[in-house]
Computed example of a mutant assay.
Amino acid sequence: MQFPKQVEIIEVGPRDGLQNEKVFVPTESKKRLIEKLALAGFDRIETASFVHPKVVPQMADAAEIAAFCRELGMKFIALTPNVKALQRAIDAGVPQIAVFVGASETFNEKNINRSIEQSLAECADVFQLAKKHQLFIRGYVSMCFSCPYEGDVTYEQVKRVVSHFVTYGVDEISIGDTNGQANPQLVYERFSQLKKDFPNTQFVGHFHDTNGFAYANIIAAMQAGIEKFDSSIAGLGGCPFSPGATGNVSTEKVVQLLEEMKIAMNIKQDALKEAALFAKSIIEN
Score class of each variant (00 low, 15 high):
Pro57Asp: 07
Ala62Arg: 02
His164Cys: 05
Val254Pro: 05
Val249Ser: 07
Lys280Val: 15
Ser49Ile: 05
Val170Gly: 00
Gly169Ser: 03
Asp125Val: 08
Asn179Asp: 11
Phe42Pro: 07
Ala214His: 05
Val249Trp: 00
Ile219Ala: 11
Phe165Asn: 03
Val254His: 03
Val187Met: 12
Ala214Ser: 14
Arg15Glu: 05
Glu109Leu: 14
Glu109Ser: 09
Ala130Gly: 01
Thr27Glu: 11
Pro26Val: 01
Lys132Phe: 10
Leu39His: 12
Ser242Asp: 06
Leu37Gly: 05
Glu64Arg: 03
Pro53His: 04
Leu277Ser: 15
Val158Asn: 06
Ala60Leu: 02
Tyr140Gln: 05
Glu150Cys: 02
Glu11Pro: 08
Val25Asp: 01
Val55Phe: 15
Thr178Asn: 03
Thr210His: 13
Glu252Cys: 04
Val83Ala: 08
Phe136Ala: 04
Val170Met: 00
Val170Thr: 08
Cys239Ser: 06
Asn285Ile: 05
Ile10Cys: 08
Arg190Tyr: 13
Ser250Pro: 06
Ile263Phe: 06
Asp230Val: 01
Gly235Lys: 12
Asp177Cys: 00
Phe3Met: 15
Ser29Gln: 14
Asn111Trp: 13
Glu227Gly: 08
Asn82Phe: 00
Arg114Phe: 15
Tyr188Phe: 15
Ser163Cys: 07
Val255Gln: 15
Arg32Gly: 03
Met59Cys: 11
Ala67His: 13
Gln6Trp: 01
Glu156Asn: 10
Phe229Glu: 00
Phe50Thr: 05
Ala275Gly: 09
Phe203Gln: 03
Tyr155Trp: 07
Thr167Ser: 13
Ser242Val: 09
Gly238Val: 06
Met143Phe: 07
Cys147Tyr: 01
Lys132His: 12
Val204Gly: 06
Ala92Trp: 02
Val25Trp: 05
Thr27Cys: 10
Pro240Val: 05
Lys273Ile: 15
Asp270Cys: 06
Pro57Val: 05
Asp61Phe: 09
Ala48Val: 08
Ile282Pro: 10
Gln181Ile: 05
Phe191Gly: 00
Leu18Gly: 09
Leu33Arg: 06
Asn20Lys: 08
Gly247Lys: 07
Asn111His: 04
Pro148Ala: 08
Glu260Cys: 10
Ser142Phe: 00
Ser232Leu: 00
Gly13Trp: 04
Glu71Gly: 13
Ala264Thr: 12
Ala48His: 09
Ala234Ile: 09
Val101Ser: 02
Asn20His: 10
Ser119Cys: 06
Ser281Ala: 14
Leu86Arg: 02
Phe191Ser: 00
Asn111Glu: 08
Ser142Lys: 07
Ser115Gln: 12
Met143Ser: 06
Arg160Ser: 13
Lys253Cys: 13
Ile233Lys: 02
Glu156Phe: 11
Ile219Trp: 14
Ile263Gly: 09
Gly205Asn: 02
Asn266Lys: 10
Asp43Met: 10
Thr201Val: 13
His208Lys: 09
Ser163Arg: 03
Ile263Thr: 06
Asn285Trp: 07
Lys280Gly: 11
Leu37Cys: 02
Phe191Trp: 01
Phe76Ser: 00
Pro81Leu: 02
Gly225Gln: 11
Asp230Glu: 11
Val254Thr: 12
Val187Ile: 12
Val126Gly: 02
Ala216Cys: 01
Met143Arg: 04
Pro199Val: 12
Met59Trp: 04
Gly102Met: 06
Asp91Gln: 14
Gln134Leu: 10
Ala276Thr: 14
Val254Trp: 01
Ile137Gly: 02
Val83Phe: 04
Val83Asp: 01
Ser29His: 13
Lys22Phe: 06
